[in-house]
Simulated scan of single mutants.
Amino acid sequence: MLLELKHIMEEEYTVLKKLLEALREQNRYLVRREAFNLDKIVKILEERSKNVALLEMKRRKLTKNRPMREIIEEAKDDNLKKIYEDIVEVLQKMQFQKDTNEALIKHGMIFTHQMLRALNPNVEAKTYNSIGRSR
């Protein structure tokens, strides 16, 4: 079981690294505002995320949904522990990159919305809500 688990985790690590690289590429496209490349990278992100999910399901089936920390402590295998720590590190980097990309997307959407409001002003009478914003 440990040998198969180690193999699955190594494969999962390589797929996660590829997913992280795709997130970094998405970041570059967001910064450069390359809309067509962003459309392409979404498909790549979906495909790589699906691969990660498949490997995760394999691993959970093999470990019978037991926590990985518990399994690693019982195994006392330094190589397995190293792979697990590498996976955790990549996941943390991915979370940071994902949050950064989401912030860039949100910022771009707010900017676009403001530009559209400036280009096409509303000619109706302004009414204000309780917060003080116009409707």
Rank of each mutant, 00 (worst) to 15 (best):
D78N: 10
E56T: 12
F36C: 03
S134V: 11
L20D: 02
G108Q: 11
I105K: 05
R48A: 05
R60P: 00
I83G: 10
R133D: 14
T112G: 06
G132I: 02
R117W: 01
H107G: 02
R69Q: 13
Y84F: 12
F36D: 15
H107Y: 12
E4M: 09
E102V: 09
V88S: 06
E10L: 06
N120G: 01
L119H: 04
E124L: 01
E10H: 00
T63A: 00
K76I: 04
R28Y: 04
R135F: 12
K93N: 14
V15K: 08
L54T: 10
K17W: 03
E46D: 13
L80R: 05
H113T: 15
K64T: 02
M115V: 13
S49K: 08
R48I: 09
R28W: 02
L16I: 14
K43C: 03
D77I: 00
H113M: 14
Q95K: 15
F96S: 14
K50H: 12
D86Y: 04
F111R: 14
K43M: 07
Q26W: 07
L45S: 06
L54N: 09
K50Q: 12
I105D: 07
E85T: 15
Q114W: 07
F111P: 04
M68P: 01
A103E: 12
R60C: 00
E56W: 02
L19V: 03
D78M: 11
S134T: 07
I105G: 03
T127H: 05
R66A: 02
I8R: 07
N101V: 10
N65R: 00
M1H: 06
K18N: 15
E25W: 04
N65L: 00
E21N: 08
P67C: 01
V123P: 13
N51C: 07
L38E: 03
S134P: 00
N122A: 00
E70D: 05
L91R: 06
E12H: 01
I110K: 08
K58Q: 15
V88I: 13
R133S: 15
S49N: 14
R59Y: 02
D39V: 09
E124R: 00
S130W: 01
T100W: 10
G108T: 08
M1C: 05
A22M: 04
E10C: 03
M68Y: 00
K50W: 08
N37E: 15
I105Y: 10
I71E: 03
L91Q: 12
I105R: 07
N27G: 14
R24Q: 14
L20E: 05
K50N: 11
L91T: 11
L104E: 12
V123S: 09
D39F: 03
M68T: 02
L55Y: 06
A22W: 04
F111D: 14
K98L: 15
R32W: 07
V15M: 06
I41R: 01
S130K: 15
E47I: 07
M94F: 06
M115I: 13
I110Q: 11
M9R: 06
